[in-house]
C-alpha cells in the first residue's frame, strides 16, 4: 500500500458515494447512464469473486464488499426505485459492442487460462471502457449536472492515481501487471477530454455544457 493506491481507492469510493447520494437526495437519476452502472456492477462482480476463495486483508475485503454493495444499490435506484426519472431515451449506447469484444479479449489475453483469472481479466478490460455509455449520454444531451461532473472527476482520478501506484510499485517492489497497466492507461485516456472540460468550466463555476 502506498499513498497513490490509498488515494486512488478513496477517490473511487468518493465517486461511488457521490453518485449514490446525488440520486438519493434529488430522488432522480436524470443524466446518469444506467448502462454504465450495470457495467460497473458487472465489473465488481466478476473481479471480486476471489472474496469467496482467498482472504487478503480486512481493508481489501471491506472495500470490495462496499464497492459491490454500492454498485448494486445504484443499479437498484436507477432501474427500480427512481425508474420514472431514468433518461432511457438518451442512454442508447450499445453495450454489447463493449461486452462481447472485451469478453473475447479476456479469453485471448490473460495471465492464466482459468475461470477466475479470465473473469478478473474481463473485469479489468470492461472497467476501462465501462464509462463510455455515460460519456455518450452526456454528449447526446450536451450537458451534465455539476454533481455528475464531480462523480466523473473522482472516478477518472482514481485510475490515474493507480497509474502512479503502478509506477511506484515497479520501482520499489519490482511489481508490474501488464494487463492492469495497459487497461488503466486506456481508462485514464478516455477521461482526458472530460478532465479538460472539468478544469476549464466546472472549476470556474460554470455548468458543463457542450457546444450544440
Amino acid at each position: 500500500m502506498n499513498i497513490f493506491r490509498l488515494a486512488g481507492d478513496l477517490s473511487h469510493l468518493a465517486a461511488i458515494i457521490i453518485l449514490l447520494l446525488k440520486i438519493w437526495k434529488t430522488r432522480s437519476c436524470a443524466g446518469i447512464s444506467g448502462k454504465s452502472q450495470i457495467l460497473f456492477a458487472l465489473v465488481f462482480t466478476t473481479r471480486y469473486l476471489d472474496l469467496l476463495t482467498s482472504f487478503i486483508s480486512l481493508y481489501n475485503t471491506f472495500m470490495k464488499v462496499v464497492y459491490i454493495g454500492c454498485a448494486y444499490a445504484t443499479v437498484y435506484l436507477i432501474y427500480m426505485k427512481f425508474k420514472a426519472t431514468y433518461d432511457g431515451n438518451h442512454d442508447t449506447f450499445r453495450v454489447e459492442f463493449l461486452v462481447v469484444p472485451v469478453g473475447g479479449l479476456a479469453f485471448l489475453v490473460n495471465h492464466d487460462f482459468s475461470p477466475l483469472e479470465i473473469l478478473w481479466t474481463f473485469s479489468i478490460y470492461l472497467e476501462s471502457v465501462a464509462i463510455l455509455p455515460q460519456l455518450f449520454l452526456i454528449s447526446k444531451t450536451g450537458e451534465a449536472e455539476t454533481i455528475t461532473t464531480h462523480y466523473l472527476f473522482c472516478l477518472g482520478v482514481y485510475r490515474a492515481l493507480y497509474l502512479f501506484n503502478w509506477i511506484w510499485r515497479f520501482y520499489f517492489e519490482g511489481f508490474f501487471d501488464m494487463i492492469a497497466i495497459v487497461a488503466g492507461v486506456v481508462q485514464t485516456i478516455l477521461y482526458c477530454d472530460f478532465f479538460y472540460l472539468y478544469v476549464t468550466k466546472v472549476l470556474k463555476g460554470k455548468k458543463l455544457s457542450l457546444p450544440a
Binding site: D9, R47, I56, N60, M63, Y67, H111, D112, W120, N165
Partner: peptide, 10 residues
Amino acid sequence: EDDAQPKDEL
C-alpha cells in the same frame, strides 16, 4: 510474461 499474482489491488 508476468505470471498471475494474488489480487491485493481493487
